[in-house]
Amino acid sequence: MLAHQMAMENPSMIRAEAVDAMEFPELSDQFSVQGVPQTVIDSGKGIVVGAAGEAQMLAEIKRALQN
């Protein structure tokens, strides 16, 4: 999983969690998850809907960190 690979690159700064949307519906609702996969960056600073490639995910992370 891309997010997990990213965490392994710098575990002291990055934490990546795969969340089963069905088992944790309250959390899914909190981030309006309607389809999977959906990546939530820093509790909603950024959201990536659908499977994203490395470049797209990186761009979204950079965008989210600027907010």
Binding site: A3, R15, M22, F31, T39, L65
Partner: peptide, 27 residues
């Protein structure tokens, strides 16, 4: 190893603030 590209690795390794990624999936 992470198998990520050089540009991605360089950016991630220089992060100075915590980053939290939550990937919602269905099994």
């Amino acid at each position: 190893t992470t198998g990520l590209g050089a540009a991605t690795r360089e950016f991630l390794q220089t992060l100075t603030k915590p980053l939290h990624l939550q990937v919602f999936v269905t099994p």
